[in-house]
Design a protein around this nucleic acid. Structure first.
Lengths: 128, 128
DNA sequence: CTGAATCCCCTCCGATACTG
DNA sequence: CAGTATCGGAGGGGATTCAG
């Protein structure tokens, strides 16, 4: 009697991207995975280019998705901490995998960029 | 979009998202990882909601990023095949990881929908 | 069949200002 | 400190048409 999905069976990729697709969500999740618990301002500092508005919005969506937990301390000045939920923690392998690839990918880009920046063409001839 | 400042030490996440951030790129890469080689029309059929324009655009960007190889057959009607480059193949673990998580996440969503959505004790008390 | 080119709507998101 | 509210520009991306 499991009234299953009236909707179309969503593919796994879609299911994942629905939740992770935001412009800053992977950053947020990644930093939370790394640091465990972070305050709003700490996240803001870790992701300099995000605006307050977007950070708050993305955090809210992540919370609604059940990936992030929001804890408010009743004090002045306000203090709000964010951390991954148990379900959010299941993303850690994915985030590590992505970050690892990004690291290697960046290295490869760096290797390709060697062909130009500051060394004159003359000096490059010698190589290879 | 894929503008990368020359000499800034980009974090791995940024490096990864610069290349994968497009709306359809993960889908494309995932299907190519699964099928090995696909024609344009086959990709279009596998991702029904993408438009021709976006599919072509995203494929072009992936090609420029060095993740996808484009092979054109000189014949009429035209035939163009896409596949992952060697470097693109290094993404397979990431894609598998993501897809696996999406699958489990989707299951969890289904399970959660059975429960009462009225229960929202969002603030303060956060037990785990 | 594969793709480029146009038009154009509509969402996203940045800047700014305000609140508790 | 941690948000919310509002406005407005930029551009993502959809529909359509043209081309090889």
């Amino acid at each position: 009697m499991m009234v299953k999905p009236k909707n179309s069976p969503i593919c796994p990729i879609t299911a994942a991207l629905d939740v992770l697709g935001g412009k800053w969500k992977v950053f947020i999740l990644s930093y939370l995975a790394e640091h465990g618990t972070l305050r709003f301002g700490e996240l803001k500092r870790l992701i300099p280019k995000v605006t307050q508005k977007m950070l708050a919005q993305q955090l809210k969506e992540l919370e609604e998705a059940g990936l992030v937990n929001r804890r408010v301390y009743a004090q002045v000045p306000p203090k709000v901490e964010y951390r991954l939920t148990a379900h959010g923690q299941t993303l850690c392998p994915v985030l590590r995998s992505l970050r690892e690839w990004g690291y290697l990918h960046r290295e490869k880009l760096g290797a390709e960029e060697v062909t130009c920046p500051e060394v004159s063409a003359e000096k490059l001839i010698a190589v290879e």
